[in-house]
Design a protein around this nucleic acid. Structure first.
Lengths: 107, 107
DNA sequence: TTTATATATGAAAAAAATTTCATATAATAA
DNA sequence: TTATTATATGAAATTTTTTTCATATATAAA
């Protein structure tokens, strides 16, 4: 059973794609700029951007040989809500020792 | 690099856990009731609940041999925001043919 | 019209998440 | 006590997602 919820989380619920959305919150950026800013490998970034585009979180336009990405206003709002929540609950979230417990150092 | 964002999405960004949070939006429920309502297999549900608990999205209390789960008000708000967004963009999201393209029937 | 730059694509490899399964525990009832 | 119900745990199997890699395309510059 696949519904919109799955697509939403597939696109949205990922660290790098969320970072991309946050970066695009302030300003339009082309792929190369995102790459430098976020230190994501070129092909990964390209895959992530495609995913975000397909789920309509962002839009693109061409300019010379660059492709300039822009976040949609609705996406921006949602990203801000979620960011606020994460910030507020940071300490609790970091205490989660179920998932990624080794990395979190709490066995 | 693991930060609060990862923990947030690990717990929140999953279909079944999101369904659990939605069910708990209306009323407190024990594990058995959630199981019936959502048709999630017992051990899976238990793992999911543990994950949600650890990331502080929900709370539990004991009552006899049952464990009654309750969503936190802040989580509820966020779930509502996200639900609204998913509903609004449902058609776009369903058109996403990058992820899960076979299941979506659009090759 | 070749070369360089910016970005995209697709398949295979690797990593991570989810599911399954066998079993454990805790509380109540018989 | 022993049995039963409700739920949790941990490890192995499976599935899904992410990353890597090799290559393609499109635009502009030389």
């Amino acid at each position: 059973m696949t519904d919109a919820t799955d697509f939403f989380f597939d696109a949205f619920g990922n660290r790098n794609r969320f970072r991309i959305l946050k970066s695009l919150g302030n300003k339009e950026l082309c792929a190369g700029e995102l790459q430098k800013e976020l230190m994501i490998e070129q092909t990964n970034l390209s895959h992530d951007l495609k995913c975000l585009l397909n789920c309509q979180f962002i839009t693109v336009r061409k300019s010379g040989r660059k492709r300039i990405y822009k976040i949609k206003p609705e996406t921006k709002e949602l990203v801000e809500e979620v960011s606020k929540h994460i910030k507020k609950y940071e300490l609790y979230l970091k205490k989660c020792n179920i998932i990624k417990e080794e990395e979190n150092g709490e066995i």
